[in-house]
Amino acid sequence: MNNTKVWHGFSLDDLFIICRGNAKNINSKKDEGDVSLISAKDNNNGFNKNVIPTSKETIYKNVYTVNNNGNGVCLSYYHEYPLIASSDVTILKPKYDKFCNISVALFITTLIRQQKSKFNYGYKMSESRVKKQKILLPLKQGFDESNNSPTIEDIDFEYMINYINNIITNKKSN
């Protein structure tokens, strides 16, 4: 990443509404439907199967998920589609629409995943630990931290979008 940028740590709790998935009996026979069931898998964006949710299961859309345990602990994904999530998954609902951009989401999920090394069998990723996690985000050019603390308006979303789009363009050209 560009070393001339000013970066600031934001707690996930400042950026997202954080809650736990509440889908039950995910291994039982559920009727096939059009809502994705997300669990703490380490592949396929945590996708388990498409189901018809029960009335007690919360449906989310345009959210991030973080796996709480298993081989995929701390893996984070962004979902633009309707989903329910198991209790092994923490849901991050963006407080700001600017986080509902696929390039920004790829940037953010990578930052969350970089924290994987601090979690293990004896120190699981829990909802309260997710809330406390900080990620470093780039600030807009000219921001002076000595005068005030940065806010959401000071985050350089354009930088994140350009950074991810450059990676995608380079991969396509190779």
Rank of each mutant, 00 (worst) to 15 (best):
N3W: 06
N3R: 14
N3G: 10
N3D: 14
T4D: 13
V6N: 08
V6I: 15
F10Y: 14
S11H: 10
S11E: 15
S11N: 12
L12I: 07
F16T: 00
I17F: 12
I18G: 07
C19A: 15
K24R: 14
K24Y: 09
N25F: 12
N25G: 15
I26A: 10
N27A: 13
S28M: 13
E32V: 13
E32A: 13
G33I: 05
D34Q: 15
S36I: 04
S39K: 08
K41A: 09
K41W: 00
K41D: 03
K41Y: 09
D42G: 12
D42K: 09
N43Q: 14
N43I: 09
N44G: 10
N45H: 11
G46Q: 04
G46Y: 04
G46I: 04
G46R: 02
F47A: 00
N48C: 07
K49S: 13
K49R: 15
N50H: 11
V51G: 01
V51F: 03
I52G: 02
P53V: 07
S55Y: 08
K56D: 14
E57I: 03
T58W: 00
T65F: 04
V73H: 01
V73Y: 02
L75S: 09
L75R: 06
L75Q: 10
L75T: 05
S76Q: 05
Y77F: 11
Y81L: 10
Y81D: 06
Y81H: 11
L83W: 00
I84Q: 00
I84L: 03
A85S: 13
S86M: 05
S87L: 06
I91C: 02
L92T: 03
L92F: 04
K95I: 14
D97V: 13
N101F: 01
I102V: 12
I102D: 09
L106M: 11
L106C: 09
T109L: 05
T110D: 02
Q114T: 06
Q115H: 12
Q115L: 13
K116F: 09
F119C: 08
F119Q: 01
F119E: 03
N120Y: 08
N120R: 03
Y121I: 07
Y121R: 07
G122W: 02
G122H: 08
G122S: 15
M125N: 07
M125Y: 03
M125Q: 07
S126V: 11
S128I: 10
S128N: 07
K131F: 01
K131Q: 08
K131T: 06
Q133L: 15
Q133W: 02
Q133T: 11
L136Y: 08
L139Y: 03
K140E: 09
Q141D: 15
Q141I: 11
F143E: 04
D144H: 04
D144Q: 07
E145W: 01
S149L: 14
I152G: 06
I152H: 01
D154S: 10
I155Y: 00
I155K: 01
D156N: 07
F157C: 10
F157K: 01
E158I: 13
E158F: 05
Y159M: 06
M160D: 06
M160C: 11
I164H: 02
I164W: 00
N165R: 10
I167W: 08
T169E: 15
N170T: 13
N170W: 07
S173Y: 12
S173C: 12
